[in-house]
Simulated scan of single mutants.
Amino acid sequence: MKVEARIFDIVTVFAFLVAAIYGVMTHYMSGYGTEPVGLVALILTGGLALLAGSYLRFVSRRIEARPEDREDAEVSDGAGELGFFSPGSYWPIGLAASAALAGLALAFFHIWLLVIAVVSLLITIGGLVFEYHTGPNHD
Rank of each mutant, 00 (worst) to 15 (best):
V59D: 04
T124A: 15
N137H: 07
Y90M: 14
F14L: 08
A41S: 13
M29V: 06
M29N: 05
Y132F: 12
S76L: 12
V13H: 06
F109P: 01
L122I: 12
A105I: 11
T34I: 11
G88C: 13
A99H: 02
L17P: 01
V18Y: 03
A73Q: 05
D9Q: 13
A117P: 10
A96E: 09
E131P: 09
D69Y: 00
G47S: 11
F108C: 05
S98Q: 06
F85P: 01
A41F: 04
I21N: 05
L50G: 03
L113V: 10
D69P: 00
P87I: 07
I116C: 11
Y55W: 06
R61S: 05
G103L: 14
E68T: 11
E71D: 15
P87K: 13
A49L: 03
G31E: 09
T45I: 04
L82D: 10
L44A: 15
R62N: 06
E68Q: 08
V40H: 08
G80Q: 06
R66P: 00
A117D: 08
H27P: 01
L48Q: 04
Y22C: 02
I43P: 00
V118F: 12
L104D: 08
S120I: 13
G94C: 08
V18Q: 00
I111R: 12
T45E: 02
A41D: 07
I93E: 11
W91R: 09
V40G: 10
L50V: 00
A102E: 12
A107S: 14
Y90G: 12
I21Y: 10
E64A: 07
S60T: 03
A49H: 02
S76V: 15
G83M: 02
